[in-house]
């Protein structure tokens, strides 16, 4: 239906506009264009409305309602769900943890992916190979990767890869994920996250790098600027908009961390023994395991609020989507 409807439309649009078109014809053309727009976007918009916005609205109402083992509204409790969650020490701990985690992981991911992008962009031969090699992990599922990290690389048995390497230097087998003093599990979590994410951000940076006009570099090299000076004065400032957008994505990804934390620490039973817990892990336990959809929804909105706040602050400082001056 859509195919027959659009074909003549496109043909008409491609034709250069004639100098004088009767008013009636212009009107019908506009109307049929509007109709096509509605027909083509309606399924998408209806889908969005039903499966996103109605769900979000419902969840917002649930957050003010007592909803244990049900998602029907009616038992209004005001802000009780929010109060309960904020008075829960484990949830507060998880919020503190995720802010600290974000403060650490975002700069590390940023520097690593920008560095890789600059290096890969400089390689003269086999650039496509390196680009692909670094991007490939981005296609791996978080859970699958977490299983490899948990069971093959960092398992507590002597045959785990990390322990095998350690044994070469005379170290005893170490349970990486379970050791809390010092907190070795961070090595597992951070390496896993970097491996999964750096490649994707690297590609975005490479796209940014390639949009920098080469004549700037030519002028700089004529002026005798070294590589560091070139990076500081040309590359980094010219990447400003790319960097701001990537930072935004990184903040959101870090604050929403769940998959690898859950997969690394889950024991098959319910949660509880994990040394660190992200807010989403806590809310998963509350809403999906313990079936308290009221408190779970309240938590979802608290987390959203946190993300919005951090994004606004970031926008204030770095100027999100500000025009190049």
């Amino acid at each position: 239906m859509t195919a027959t409807g659009t074909a003549p439309l496109r043909k008409r649009a491609a034709r250069p506009a004639p100098a004088k078109v009767p008013r009636r014809r212009r009107l019908t053309e506009r109307r049929s264009k509007a109709l096509a727009f509605i027909v083509l976007t309606a399924p998408m918009l209806i889908g969005l409305a039903v499966f996103r916005y109605v769900a979000i609205g419902w969840s917002f109402l649930l957050s003010f309602s007592e909803a244990r083992r049900t998602i029907s509204l009616g038992k209004w409790v005001g802000l009780d769900n929010y109060k309960e969650l904020l008075s829960d020490e484990r949830f507060r701990d998880s919020l503190t943890m995720i802010v600290l985690f974000t403060a650490m992981i975002v700069p590390v991911t940023f520097v690593a992916s920008l560095g890789l992008a600059v290096l890969v962009n400089r390689v003269r031969r086999g650039r496509a190979f390196f680009r692909t090699a670094f991007l490939l992990p981005a296609a791996v599922s978080y859970v699958a990767a977490a299983m490899i990290w948990k069971m093959a690389l960092f398992s507590g048995v002597p045959s785990g890869l990390a322990n095998t390497i350690g044994a070469l230097f005379g170290a005893d087998a170490t349970p990486w994920i379970q050791t809390q003093s010092p907190p070795l599990y961070w090595i597992v979590l951070v390496t896993l996250r970097l491996w999964l994410q750096v490649g994707l951000y690297m590609i975005l940076f490479i796209a940014g790098l390639q949009s920098i006009p080469p004549h700037l570099y030519e002028a700089a090299s004529l002026d005798g600027a070294g590589p560091w000076r070139t990076f500081r004065s040309i590359t980094f400032p010219m990447l400003r908009n790319t960097s701001v957008a990537i930072l935004l994505l990184m903040f959101i990804a870090a604050l929403q961390a769940f998959d690898e934390f859950y997969a690394i620490f889950s024991t098959g039973a319910s949660l509880g023994s994990e040394p660190v817990r992200t807010p989403l892990m806590h809310l998963y336990g509350v809403a999906l395991q313990d079936q308290d959809y009221g408190v779970g929804s309240a938590g979802a909105f608290l987390l959203t609020l946190l993300i919005v706040l951090i994004t606004l602050v970031q926008g204030r400082i770095l100027g999100f989507a500000r025009d190049k001056d």
């Binding site: 319910s270 949660l271 509880g272 994990e274 509350v286 395991q289 313990d290």
Partner: peptide
């Protein structure tokens, strides 16, 4: 017993173990 009680109890035991 609920999963929340379970998680709370196990988390306490994990802290004690440390």
């Amino acid at each position: 017993w609920t999963q929340a009680m379970q998680a709370e109890f196990i988390a306490a035991a994990a802290d004690i173990a440390q």
